[in-house]
Nucleic acid binder design. Structure first.
Length: 844
DNA sequence: AGCACGCCGACT
DNA sequence: GTCGGCGTGCTC
C-alpha cells in the first residue's frame, strides 16, 4: 500500500513531530477513523469551538453515523484533491494528549508486525468507552390507529417487532437481521406514515464518576462552631482533611445539612471529585518489610539495579527460589527514582497472593489492571495510570498497554506461560515480544522470570551474548541480555524428589483404581502426618463426556464438533452438559435420548470424578476442588485458597490453575494423576508444555519447613521429558528438545504464521482454502517458505462455523517473501473470514 | 418497463 | 455501521 501512511515508519513518525507543534482551533485535520476497511486518512474541518492536538481522540461524522478517530496530522487546504465542500466538521474532542511519541511508534510497530490495521491496535491499547460509535435506533410513535391494514408485509413485521418491545425500541441493525427482506422499504414506509421515528444513539462513552468530597480548608477552629460541628471537623481532620461526603456522614453519624452549615462558615468545602471505580479487594494489609536475600538473589538484584536503559534479563529461578522478592526490591529502587513499574502475570485471579504481597509492600501505589475489570473500573484505572508519576501496575496480557508516563521497569512473571499470547482477535500479540519493543523504546529494562523459560527466551538470551549454553558466564560488557540464575530454593530447601509411577505395572498388579499404590500410600501418610497435598489433573481435551453404556450414544454439542462436558454445580439432579467451545448448555438427561437406557453416565476423569473417587477410597480425606467450575464466581480463587491455607481441607484437586505461582508452604505432596494427556498433545510444543507444567506443579510442594514429594503417574514412564522433570533438569530438557526444533525449523529457530479461515458455509471455506492453498504452494519455493495444510482445524466446527487453516513456516533470516495478505483476503468470498496469527501458540 | 432484492463499495 | 447505487431477475 504505497499511498498509505503506514508504508514506512519514517512517514508515520512525521505526524507525531507535529504533535509537539501544538494545537489548532481551525483548519483541516486528517483523521484515522474507527471503521474496519478504511485504512486511508479522512479529512475533517476543525470548527472554532474545538481545539485539536495531533494524537487526540475525536469523533467525526461518517456516512450516517458518528465514529471515533485519531487526529493524525494537520493539512493545508491547497494540499488536498478532495472537493472542499464535502468536508465535514469534527463532532467532538473526546480525549487529548494521550499518546507519547514512543508509545505511538510502539503501536505502529505492533500493527505492522501482526498485520493488523493501526486503529485496531489503538483500540486494544485504550480502555473501553473512549473510542465509540453511534447506532441508529428505530422507535415506535404512539398512535391510536391500527396500522395493520395499510402496511406492506416487511413494514408490518418491523412494526410487530417494535411492539413486542416494552419501550417500542430496537436498533436498526437488529431489525435488519430479523427482517431479512425489504427492511429498508418497510422502514421508509413506516417513517413516511409517521408510525416510527429513526434517531442516532450516541456511543456509550465512559465518564469519570463524580462524587461529593469534603475538604478541610482551615486548620484553626474559631468559637463560632457548635460542639457537633466541631466534632465533624475533627473527624475530617483525623482522616487527613479529606473524605467522601458519604464516608464523613457515616463516620460522624450526621446529615448533609450540618456539612452545609460548616461550609458556609468557611471551614470546609464540598467539591465534586472523580471517584475511582477501582479494584479494591481488601483495604488493609500488614506492612511487609524487605526480606534478606540469598547470595544468588542479591547478585541478581545487583545486576538489575546497575542497569541503565534497555536490557533484557532472564531471571531463571527454580520454583521456590524467591523471584518475587527480587522483583519487589528491584521495583523499590525504581519507585525511589520516581519512576513506575509494570508487572505482567499470567492470570491475575489465580495469584491473589502475589497482588497481596505487592500491596503489603507498596500499599496504594499498586494498581491492578486486567480484562475482568468492569468497563468503568478499567476506564478509571487507566486514567489514573495516565497521571500518577510513580506507581506499580500489575496486570495480565493487556496491561502491557498501560499508559505509564514514566516507565522504569517491565517484569513478566512466569514468562513461559501461554496466556501471554493473544490468539484471537487481531492483533495476535505476544506480551513478551511487544514488552521487549516497549522496553527498547522507553528505554528501560525488561525482566523475564521463570523456572522453565520458553525456548524462545532461552535462545534469545543466549544469542544476546549474556549466556551461551552451559554454565553461567559473566555477561559481556555491552550485552543487552543478561542471564541471572537462581539455582537453589530460599533457605536451602531442597527441590522435592519426583517419583514416576508406571501405571501399566499397576494394572498388571490388578490395581484398576485411578490411584497407584505409591500415590495411595503417600496420601495416607500425608493424612496421618496432618499435612496437605495437591492433586493435578490435566483435563484439556479429556473433559468428562456423557455416553450411553447400552447404545454408545454420546452427548454432543449441536453447534460444534465436540462432546458436551458434564458439570455438577449443585445437587446431582440438576447436572448440566456444557460445550467448552461455544458455551452451549443444557440439562443432563437422566436416560439416554437415543435408546432410553438408564445406563447413561459420564465418562472421563475430571476433577469431579477424581474427588468422587477419592471420597470412596479415602472417606476421611477432605478435598477441595480448584478448577474453572469452582472458581468462576468473583473472589472464589481467594476463598478456596484461604480455606485450604486455614487447614479446612487436606487435598486441593485441580487443573492447570494449580501450576501458576501458588505459594502454599504447608504442601508436602503433589500427585499428577496422568501425565499422558499432556505428553500426547499433537503440536510441536507438546514436550515443552509438558516439561513446564509438570515442573511447575512439582514446584508447589516442599516450600515450607517439611520436605515434599512428587508422584507422577503415567503409561509412558520412559519418556525423556519425564526424566528431565524427575531430575529438575532444564538443561537435559533443552538438550533433548532444541536439536529437534532446529531440524524441523520450528521456533525458536524458524518462524510460523497461521492463517485461519472460517465460515458458516462448509463448502465455501473448503473451496476457498483449497484455492488459496494451491496458490501459496506455487509461490512457496520462490517465497522461501514451507506450507503446511490446508487442513481442517482440530475441532472443525465451532459455533456452527467450519474452520480450516494453513500454516507458513520459514527461517527468520530475512530471505522470506511472504504473500500479500490483503490480496489473499480478497480471494475469500464475503462469507469466508480469514485471520492471520503471527507466531501462533494455539493450533486448535 | 418497472420493481424488488441483495450485493458491494463509499463514507472526508 | 450506514447508506445509496447498481445489476439481476422477476412481474405486469
Amino acid at each position: 500500500m504505497p499511498d498509505s501512511y503506514l508504508s514506512t515508519p519514517a512517514t508515520v513518525a512525521e505526524p507525531i513531530t507535529g504533535y509537539a507543534i501544538g494545537n489548532k482551533s481551525h483548519g483541516l485535520v486528517e483523521v484515522l477513523v474507527d471503521c474496519p476497511g478504511i485504512q486511508a486518512l479522512y479529512t475533517y474541518n476543525i470548527p472554532d469551538k474545538f481545539t485539536v492536538q495531533i494524537g487526540d481522540i475525536i469523533s467525526v461524522p461518517l456516512s450516517g453515523q458518528v465514529v471515533g478517530g485519531i487526529a493524525i496530522r494537520f493539512i493545508d487546504r491547497a494540499m488536498i484533491d478532495f472537493p472542499l465542500d464535502r468536508i465535514r466538521d469534527i463532532e467532538d474532542v473526546v480525549a487529548s494528549g494521550l499518546f507519547k511519541h514512543d508509545y505511538w511508534n510502539w503501536l505502529i510497530k505492533i500493527s505492522e508486525y501482526y498485520y493488523t490495521p493501526l486503529i485496531q491496535v489503538i483500540k486494544v491499547a485504550l480502555p473501553p468507552g473512549l473510542i465509540t460509535k453511534s447506532h441508529r435506533r428505530i422507535k415506535l410513535v404512539p398512535t391510536t390507529l391500527d396500522p395493520d391494514i395499510f402496511l406492506s408485509e416487511p413494514a408490518k413485521k418491523i412494526y410487530k417487532l417494535l411492539q413486542s418491545q416494552p419501550d417500542g425500541n430496537y436498533s436498526w441493525q437488529h431489525i435488519q437481521k430479523q427482517v431479512t427482506t425489504g427492511a429498508r422499504r418497510g422502514l421508509r414506509e413506516l417513517l413516511d406514515r409517521h408510525l416510527v421515528e429513526s434517531y442516532l444513539e450516541s456511543g456509550k462513552t465512559q465518564k469519570a464518576k463524580l462524587q461529593k468530597a469534603v475538604v478541610l480548608t482551615a486548620d484553626i477552629f474559631a468559637i463560632d462552631l457548635t460542639d457537633r460541628q466541631r466534632e465533624i471537623v475533627e473527624i475530617l481532620k483525623q482522616n487527613g482533611g479529606e473524605l467522601w461526603q458519604q464516608e464523613l456522614l457515616e463516620l460522624g453519624r450526621t446529615s448533609a445539612g450540618i456539612l452545609k452549615k460548616i461550609e458556609e462558615k468557611g471551614y470546609i468545602s464540598i467539591v465534586s471529585k472523580e471517584k475511582l471505580r477501582a479494584d479494591r479487594e481488601i483495604g488493609i494489609f500488614q506492612q511487609e518489610q524487605a526480606k534478606v536475600l540469598t547470595e544468588d538473589q542479591a547478585s541478581a538484584l545487583n545486576v538489575i539495579n546497575g542497569l541503565d536503559g534497555f536490557a533484557e534479563i532472564l531471571l531463571h529461578g527454580v520454583t521456590g527460589s524467591g523471584k518475587t522478592e527480587v522483583y519487589l526490591q528491584a521495583i523499590h529502587k525504581i519507585l525511589v527514582q520516581g519512576k513506575s513499574a509494570l508487572v505482567l502475570v499470567p492470570e491475575i485471579g489465580l495469584t491473589p497472593q502475589l497482588t497481596d504481597r505487592f500491596r503489603s509492600r507498596f500499599g496504594d501505589r499498586v494498581a491492578v489492571y486486567h480484562s475482568a475489570l468492569s468497563d468503568g473500573e478499567r476506564y478509571d484505572t487507566w486514567r489514573k495510570m495516565l497521571t500518577e508519576t510513580s506507581q506499580i501496575v500489575i496486570g495480565t496480557r493487556s496491561a502491557i498497554f498501560a499508559p505509564l508516563p514514566n516507565l522504569g521497569l517491565i517484569i513478566l512473571d512466569e514468562e513461559h506461560d501461554s496466556s501471554f499470547k493473544q490468539d484471537q482477535p487481531a492483533p495476535t500479540y505476544h506480551a513478551r515480544d511487544i514488552a521487549r519493543w516497549r522496553a527498547e523504546l522507553e528505554p528501560c529494562p525488561l525482566i523475564l522470570g521463570s523456572a522453565t523459560p520458553a525456548l524462545e527466551t532461552w535462545v534469545r538470551i543466549g544469542q544476546g551474548g549474556g549466556y551461551p549454553r552451559g554454565a553461567p558466564l559473566p555477561p559481556l560488557p555491552n550485552a543487552k541480555t543478561y542471564y541471572l540464575p537462581l539455582p537453589t530454593r530460599v533457605r536451602s530447601r531442597p527441590l522435592p524428589p519426583v517419583e514416576i509411577v508406571d501405571m501399566r505395572q499397576e494394572l498388571k498388579l490388578g490395581n484398576r483404581s485411578m490411584f497407584s499404590q505409591p500415590l495411595q500410600r503417600a496420601l495416607r501418610q500425608m493424612q496421618s502426618l496432618q499435612q496437605q497435598g495437591i492433586l493435578f489433573i490435566h483435563r484439556r481435551g479429556h473433559s468428562t463426556f456423557v455416553s450411553c453404556r447400552s447404545c454408545g450414544y454420546v452427548a454432543e454439542c449441536p453447534n460444534c464438533d465436540v462432546s458436551l462436558a458434564y458439570h455438577q454445580p449443585g445437587a446431582a439432579d440438576n447436572a448440566l452438559l456444557r460445550c467448552h467451545y461455544c458455551n452451549y448448555c443444557q440439562p443432563s438427561p437422566r436416560r439416554c435420548p437415543e435408546c432410553d437406557s438408564a445406563y447413561f453416565k459420564f465418562f472421563g476423569s475430571g476433577t469431579q470424578k477424581i474427588v468422587e473417587e477419592l471420597n470412596v477410597q479415602f472417606p476421611d480425606l477432605r478435598c477441595l476442588r480448584f478448577d474453572s467450575d469452582t472458581t468462576s464466581a468473583k473472589g472464589a480463587h481467594r476463598r478456596i485458597l484461604t480455606e485450604f491455607v486455614n487447614g479446612e481441607a487436606d487435598l486441593l484437586v485441580g487443573t492447570q490453575m494449580l501450576t501458576k505461582g501458588l505459594d502454599l508452604p504447608q504442601v508436602t505432596l503433589v500427585g499428577v494423576v496422568a501425565a499422558d494427556g499432556l505428553l500426547h498433545l499433537s503440536d510441536y510444543r507438546a514436550a515443552e508444555r509438558t516439561f513446564q507444567t509438570l515442573t511447575q506443579v512439582a514446584g508447589r510442594c516442599g516450600r515450607g519447613d517439611e520436605a515434599g514429594q512428587v508422584i507422577i503417574q503415567t503409561y509412558n514412564p520412559e519418556h525423556p521429558v519425564l526424566h528431565a522433570v524427575t531430575k529438575h533438569d532444564y538443561q537435559a530438557f533443552l538438550t533433548e528438545e532444541l536439536p529437534e526444533r532446529e531440524v524441523f525449523n520450528y521456533p525458536p529457530y524458524g518462524k510460523l504464521i497461521l492463517l485461519r479461515f472460517s465460515s458458516l458455509d462448509e463448502t465455501a471455506v473448503k473451496q476457498t482454502v483449497a484455492e488459496i492453498g494451491a496458490e501459496l504452494n506455487q509461490a512457496a519455493i520462490e517465497g522461501r517458505y514451507e506450507l503446511l495444510g490446508p487442513a481442517p482445524a482440530t475441532v472443525m466446527r465451532v459455533n456452527n462455523r467450519y474452520r480450516w487453516q494453513i500454516m507458513l513456516k520459514y527461517l527468520s533470516d530475512g530471505s522470506v517473501k511472504l504473500p500479500n495478505w490483503e490480496l489473499l483476503r480478497d480471494r475469500c468470498s464475503n462469507v469466508v473470514k480469514m485471520s492471520i496469527d503471527v507466531d501462533p501458540q494455539n493450533f486448535l
